[in-house]
Design a protein around this nucleic acid. Sequence first.
DNA 1: CGTTCTTATGAGATCGAGTATCAATCAAGG
DNA 2: CCTTGATTGATACTCGATCTCATAAGAACG
Lengths: 227, 227
Amino acid sequence: MTSKPAVGDRLTEAALTLFDENGYEQTTVDDITRRAGLSRATFFRHFRSKEDVVFPDHDRLLEQVRERLVSSSHATALVAVSDTVRIVLHHYLEEGELARRRYALTSTVPALRDREIVSVARYQRLFREFISEWMGDSSESAALRAELMSASVVSAHNHVLRRWLRGESPDPVREVDEALQQVIVLFTGPPEPASGNGTTIAVFSSGQPADAVIPALRQFLNSAEIA
Amino acid sequence: MTSKPAVGDRLTEAALTLFDENGYEQTTVDDITRRAGLSRATFFRHFRSKEDVVFPDHDRLLEQVRERLVSSSHATALVAVSDTVRIVLHHYLEEGELARRRYALTSTVPALRDREIVSVARYQRLFREFISEWMGDSSESAALRAELMSASVVSAHNHVLRRWLRGESPDPVREVDEALQQVIVLFTGPPEPASGNGTTIAVFSSGQPADAVIPALRQFLNSAEIA
DNA sequence: CGTTCTTATGAGATCGAGTATCAATCAAGG
DNA sequence: CCTTGATTGATACTCGATCTCATAAGAACG
């Protein structure tokens, strides 16, 4: 017996195919259901809307992030949030080609683009609330700081994710580490220089562009690690 | 003669009244046009959608911001953007009670909330592109930095704006100055005690992987260039 | 004054997304 | 064999949004 694939999968398959062939707006829900050999009613039982075909498990992912946040034990809120946002990145990385297929759609179709912006804002809100509660401080400036932190973490994540989606990032996991580290440094300042032993001092003339100095420094640090 | 108010105003007036009385979703476009004594067709000639009644001059404001950006001459991109975002705040402040009326709606109605999130993202995109172009540097870390900056400026603005909309801010102009100053300090560091000669000294604990150190260093160098 | 040309409006048809209702099917499980 | 529960299909309906065509109200012009 040809064990029929799940109804939801048949619908998404039909939908994505038609979106590629004729475009998103040009494809009606009736087109999709005809192609899948199902009825219009079943479509809306499996997806709340036409857009939901493109973003199926977004709710589940958001819930996953929420759970990770409440069960997180970290030294600082910023680190906890940075750690949590990696879940989202990994989710997309595991989707692989599907994620890129969706990216091609969201880049093209305004309605889908807007929808993704909204969903990103949901993550950011979650992070902001977590940071605010974690800090306890309910002052105005603390609220602003929480807002800046959540916005930065989300921006760092999206930056790396989009680079990977465009095929510009061979190692997104490393890149997101760097990006999040940069955010942490931004807010907590550079790590305190421990005086005495185990301290590296680099001296060079200023006024040079960063890219002129960094390669040499990177090479030095890498060789120092080995030693 | 009872010089009849402009058609658009009659429609918005009727719409907002009905939204208050019966709620947004419960009010149909036909309801609005009946109340305004106009036809359904004229409604959609003046507003692209039902949501547009609530956000009438958003496009114009966005264009205003864009023009301000291109004609801006400032020492740093961040200052230029910070300066520009005040236009948006002032726009809402001048709207006064209307802005609060709209806030009451967007807080309640999910569709309107989402729409506002999208419109905020448009500003952020404008800022990001401006900062990127201004920096010239097309490296990956510069792109991330532009993203973080634009996100932070927008967050600072929204933070103050929402406080004012909720009636929590007696002096939003002062608050937005403080908030934006906090963002600038965040990225450029506190005002330097002038370093002696043209030599930069970087101190950090060794044993760290290069990737953990370099982002902080790059950030410092970039901000030093600007100063 | 009449004629055109423009512009705003009204009226109605049509499309498509999303909701609600009811009937039909089918798979357990007693 | 029959009941129960869950999934699907069929259909009608609401409402936002687009499109077409007709009408009215002016301006400009001869």
